[in-house]
Write a protein that binds this DNA or RNA. Structure first.
Lengths: 216, 216
DNA sequence: GTTGGTTTTAAACATACGTTTAAAACAACA
DNA sequence: TGTTGTTTTAAACGTATGTTTAAAACCAAC
C-alpha cells in the first residue's frame, strides 16, 4: 500500500485553476485549459477533486481557510485589547487589510488574484459557491460585522448596511483589478503603486466615506 | 420590395439577452436560452446581429448610446452654467446619478441590470467588449474626468486616480447587486430602499471618501 | 396573382465541453 | 520478486454550444 500521495498534481491543478479562473471566469475556463497549463492529464481533475464545481470550491478553500483562521485570531486579539472600550473603524479596517496581506504568504499578486475570484463569486451565477462560502466562512464575518456595528453607534442599521457594501464594493473592485489599474497608472501618470500602497490609499477613503455626515 | 423590417424579433432578442446576460454572465448564457425566452427562432440571432459577440455589443449600445448622448448634453449645460467658476464634485456626482436614472426611461430595475452588465464587462474576459466600449464611448468619459480633475485641484494625480476607481467600484458593485441587496436589507432589517434611495445614500459616501484628508 | 426582397424556420454541422472508463505505470511493502 | 493500492494515462462517451444552410413563409408593390 502506498502511503504518500504525491500532492504535486493536485497542487499544480489548483495553481493553474486559480490563475485561469481569475483571468477568464469559471465558465470560460475549461478543464482542458487548466490541465494543459498544469502539465497534467485531463482526467486528473475529476480524480483528485471529483468535478469542476468541487475544484472551484477547493480553490476558494485553499485561500479562505487559513485567511479566516488568521482573521479569527486577530479578532480575538483585538477584542481582548479593547478592555471594555468600544472598537474603532480605522483599526478594524487596518486589521482586515493586514490579515489579507499576510494571507497568501505576503504574495501581493496572489491577493489581487483572489480578490478577482471573490468578485466573480459575487457576480457570476455560481449558486453552489455562494452556499459553500456562507456555510464555511460565514461565522467569522458575522463576528467582524458586530465589531463594525459597535464602532459606529451613530449610524442607523440601514445606513450602516449600505455603507458597508459601499466599502466592500470599492475594495473588491479596486483590488480585483489592481494589476491592470497599476499598469494604467504607470502608463498614464508614470507612477507605480504596489498593492500595499493601494490599500494604504484605500483605508482613509473608506474611513471617510463610512463616517460621512448623513441626513435622514 | 419590403420596406418595413419588423423590429419585434430583434427587440425581443435584446430584451431577453439583457436580462439573461446580467443574471448569468455572457458565457453562461446560450443563444438557445435567449431565443427560447424571446420566443423566436435560434437562427434569428445570427441573422439580425451576425454573431453572439455582436449581440453582446448591441445590448450595450442600446443602453449606452442614449446615455452618453444625455451625459454629453448635461455636461455641456453644466460647463456653461459654471461661467468660469470651478466645478464641484458633489454636483458632478449628482449630475451623473440623474443622467443614469433618466436613462432607461426612468426604469430603475433596468439601471440595476445595466450596472451588473458593466461589472461583467470589467470582470469577464471579453476583450472585444472593452475595445468596443472604449472606442465608442471613451470620449464622453474623458470629458467628465477633466471636470472631476478641475473639481479636486488639491489632490495629486495619483491620489485622484485611485479615489476615482474607489468610487467607481463602490458604485458598480452596489448598484449591480441592488436587487439582492435590497432584498437582504428587507429581510434582515425590515427596511425597503429603492435604487434611487441607494443612490441618495451613495453620493455623500463617495463625496466624503473622495475628499478625505490624505497623507503622502 | 405574380414577383422580389425580407424574415423565419427546421435541420444539420462542426466543435468544445465535463465526465467516465479501463488499461497502464507507479510506489511501497512482504 | 510479487502483490497491492494509488495515481496517471489515452481514448471514448454523451451532451451542449455557436453557426450555417436551404427551404418555407411572409409582405408590399406591380
Amino acid at each position: 500500500m502506498a502511503l504518500m500521495a504525491q500532492k504535486d498534481t493536485a497542487k499544480s491543478i489548483l495553481d493553474s485553476a486559480e490563475e485561469l479562473f481569475s483571468e477568464r471566469g469559471f465558465a470560460e475556463t475549461s478543464l482542458r485549459n487548466i490541465t494543459t497549463r498544469a502539465g497534467v492529464n485531463l482526467a486528473a481533475v475529476n480524480y483528485h477533486f471529483g468535478s469542476k464545481k468541487e475544484l472551484i470550491q477547493a480553490v476558494f478553500a485553499r485561500f479562505l481557510t487559513p485567511f479566516c483562521d488568521d482573521l479569527g485570531k486577530a479578532l480575538r486579539g483585538y477584542e481582548h485589547g479593547l478592555a471594555g472600550k468600544s472598537p474603532e473603524l480605522g483599526a478594524l479596517l487596518r486589521l482586515l487589510a493586514e490579515t489579507s496581506m499576510a494571507a497568501g504568504g505576503g504574495n501581493a499578486r496572489r491577493l489581487g488574484i483572489f480578490m478577482r475570484l471573490l468578485g466573480l463569486a459575487y457576480s457570476q451565477e455560481q449558486g453552489h459557491l455562494r452556499k459553500f462560502l456562507r456555510n464555511q466562512y460565514g461565522a467569522v464575518f458575522e463576528r467582524y460585522m458586530q465589531l463594525v456595528t459597535a464602532a459606529s453607534p451613530e449610524l442607523s442599521d440601514e445606513e450602516r448596511f449600505w455603507r458597508i457594501h459601499f466599502m466592500l464594493g470599492a475594495t473588491v473592485f479596486t483590488l480585483s483589478g489592481v494589476e491592470s489599474l497599476t499598469a494604467m497608472a504607470q502608463h498614464d501618470l508614470g507612477v507605480s503603486t504596489g498593492i500595499d500602497g493601494v490599500i494604504d490609499k484605500l483605508v482613509p477613503f473608506l474611513s471617510s466615506g463610512f463616517q460621512a455626515p448623513h441626513q435622514d
